[in-house]
Amino acid sequence: MNNKVPLTVRGAEQLRAELQKLKSVERPRVVAAIAEARAHGDLKENAEYHAAREQQGFIEGRIQEVEAKLSNAQVIDVTKLNAGGKVVFGATVDLVDVSTDEEITYQIVGDDEADIKSGLISVSSPVARALIGKMEGDEAVVQAPGGTREYEILAVRYV
């Protein structure tokens, strides 16, 4: 079973920064909150203590999750790809919706990096799956929840 998580260089840097913040800022803050709440006495009815412990659990869980993703990461530097104009992971694709003539630009990124408002779509999304392997000038048919959409690929960039 291949459990490699594809990430762009920027996505890997964002995960490393989040991990650093969790370990150096969030974890010590929660430990201090637990110590302070503990000083208030009776732990059975101490809401601050229970809230801090719960938050500590979330932080520790997220640290483990981020560490696992980074250890399984397959970091792909898009600028060094020579895919010959083909849509691949990390590529930035300029599209035009065939029915509305609306132009859109997407970059295909890992699941954790996806942010549709920023034009970053997950490699596992219907649009990305329809685009991967296609070339400039090709048409891609996307089976979206709202129906079938047809896009023409205007340009493929590796930036």
Rank of each mutant, 00 (worst) to 15 (best):
E13H: 00
L154S: 07
R10H: 06
D111C: 03
S71I: 08
N3Y: 10
K44E: 14
S122W: 03
A17N: 04
G110T: 04
N46G: 06
E48L: 08
E103K: 14
I108Q: 07
A130M: 02
T105P: 01
V75H: 07
E113P: 06
I108W: 02
D115W: 02
V5G: 00
E113A: 03
I121S: 07
D101S: 13
A144G: 04
M1A: 05
S122P: 04
I116K: 13
V31C: 02
E103C: 03
K86F: 04
I104P: 00
L95S: 09
V75A: 12
I59L: 10
G11E: 01
A144C: 01
K21L: 04
R38L: 10
L22I: 00
L81C: 11
E54Q: 15
R53I: 14
Y106K: 09
I104S: 09
Y106Q: 03
E45N: 11
Q14F: 01
Y106V: 13
E45R: 08
D115G: 08
D138M: 08
D115Q: 10
K4G: 00
D115N: 15
N2T: 03
Q74S: 13
F58L: 14
K80F: 14
V141S: 07
I108R: 07
V142W: 09
E150W: 02
V75L: 13
S118H: 12
E136F: 03
P145Q: 02
I116F: 08
A37I: 03
K117W: 09
T8R: 06
Y158P: 14
P126S: 05
S99L: 10
E152R: 15
A68S: 14
Y151I: 09
G61S: 15
L70E: 09
G90I: 01
G110C: 04
V159C: 08
G90P: 05
A155Y: 12
A52L: 12
A144P: 02
V159R: 15
Y158F: 15
T100G: 04
A37P: 10
D138E: 09
D111K: 10
S122D: 05
N82C: 06
E65T: 12
L70Q: 06
K23P: 00
S124P: 00
S24R: 04
K4H: 00
V66Y: 03
R149N: 03
E152G: 13
A39L: 04
F58K: 14
I116V: 15
A33Q: 14
D97R: 06
G61Y: 07
Q56M: 15
V25W: 05
R62W: 01
V141N: 05
N46K: 04
F58Y: 14
G57R: 05
L43Q: 11
E65M: 12
A33C: 05
E103T: 13
R53K: 15
G85T: 00
L120T: 02
A17C: 00
S24A: 08
A52W: 11
E139F: 10
Q74V: 08
G61R: 11
Q143F: 01
T148F: 02
D42F: 13
L154D: 09
S124T: 14
L7D: 06
R157C: 05
N3S: 10
V141I: 11
Y49E: 12
G57I: 11
D101T: 08
G137F: 13
T79P: 13
G146D: 05
E54G: 15
A114Q: 03
A47W: 05
R10I: 02
I116L: 13
E136M: 12
A39T: 07
V127N: 06
R149Q: 05
R129T: 03
G110K: 05
H40K: 13
A114S: 05
V87P: 01
G133Q: 01
